[in-house]
């Protein structure tokens, strides 16, 4: 971990107005749009209210975009010659990865934090413990999507890879049950997609595995996810993304 590198690189990412607006601004706007339609805030959902639920959903989306984009950009830059420049310095590959992960997690901290602040100002309610645990889960599980960004970048090897990854993220977030409550067959398919696990975990402090289902009348009949199934989802996808990235790197080394 090199502090100078961390500081200059983070500043560079934040200065990229277009990217910052999408990653930090867009989830906040989406929360304000979806969250404020949730009524006066007296609707209790699990251990918090409906605004809180929408807030966590959008924070998951924003934090995942942040890590996807930082990791994807880092991989592309490495392929395009920055890796050779770094290889002329004492920085090790491990040092580079640790520094970049720190930058990505700092960025996703800001992305999730912005949505949480918007939530706090506009009626999201829950106990202090639910707030803190939810935030930590949103923030840390976003690390999975650093692997996703890495895998896509290694597969496509061009600057458009990051756009492909962030566009794909919209679809995955939909399947991750972040935008509209899914039910029936759709929900059963969605359970196997990569955003689903981290969304379920991020909502755990509030929902304890319960899934909002507007097709049934009472909350008691809502479907449930078990904690181990959500954790398994995250672990399996971490292996898949990590595996793809590693394979692609090995393949390109051989052909160099």
């Amino acid at each position: 971990m090199n502090f100078t590198y961390f500081r200059i690189d983070l500043l560079r990412q934040l200065r990229d107005i277009g990217n910052t607006a999408i990653i930090i601004g867009l989830p906040v706007i989406m929360y304000l749009v979806f969250g404020s339609t949730g009524g006066s805030g007296d609707q209790v959902v699990g251990s918090a209210n409906e605004q809180f639920y929408v807030m966590v959903s959008m924070a998951v989306y924003g934090a995942a975009m942040a890590t996807t984009s930082i990791a994807g950009i880092a991989a592309i830059e490495r392929i395009q010659g920055w890796g050779r420049q770094l290889a002329l310095t004492p920085m090790t590959s491990t040092g580079f990865v640790v520094t970049k992960v720190t930058v990505a997690l700092t960025y996703s901290f800001f992305a999730a934090g912005a949505v949480f602040i918007a939530g706090a100002l506009t009626g999201a309610e829950g106990s202090a413990s639910v707030w803190i645990r939810s935030f930590l889960l949103v923030w840390l599980t976003s690390g999975l999507f650093a692997l996703f960004g890495l895998a896509i970048a290694q597969l496509f090897k061009s600057e458009s890879a990051v756009s492909i990854a962030t566009a794909g993220l919209v679809l995955l977030s939909f399947l991750g049950n972040l935008f509209v409550p899914l039910s029936g067959t759709m929900l059963n398919v969605a359970r196997f997609t990569p955003m689903y696990g981290i969304s379920g975990l991020a909502r755990w402090p509030q929902m304890h595995g319960a899934i909002i289902d507007n097709t049934v009348a009472s909350m008691a009949e809502w479907p449930h996810d078990s904690l181990w199934a959500l954790i398994l989802n995250v672990l399996v996808w971490a292996l898949i993304f990590g595996g793809i990235a590693t394979l692609a790197v090995t393949r390109s080394r051989k052909r160099q």
Binding site: Y5, I8, Q13, G81, W82
Partner: peptide
């Protein structure tokens, strides 16, 4: 090295500072 291989979005001075930090 041959052309390419600088980080976009950094200034000339920041690039020198960054690599100086690594050394």
């Amino acid at each position: 090295l041959q052309t390419g291989g600088l980080l976009h979005g950094l200034t000339v001075e920041e690039t020198v500072k960054l690599i100086a930090g690594l050394h």
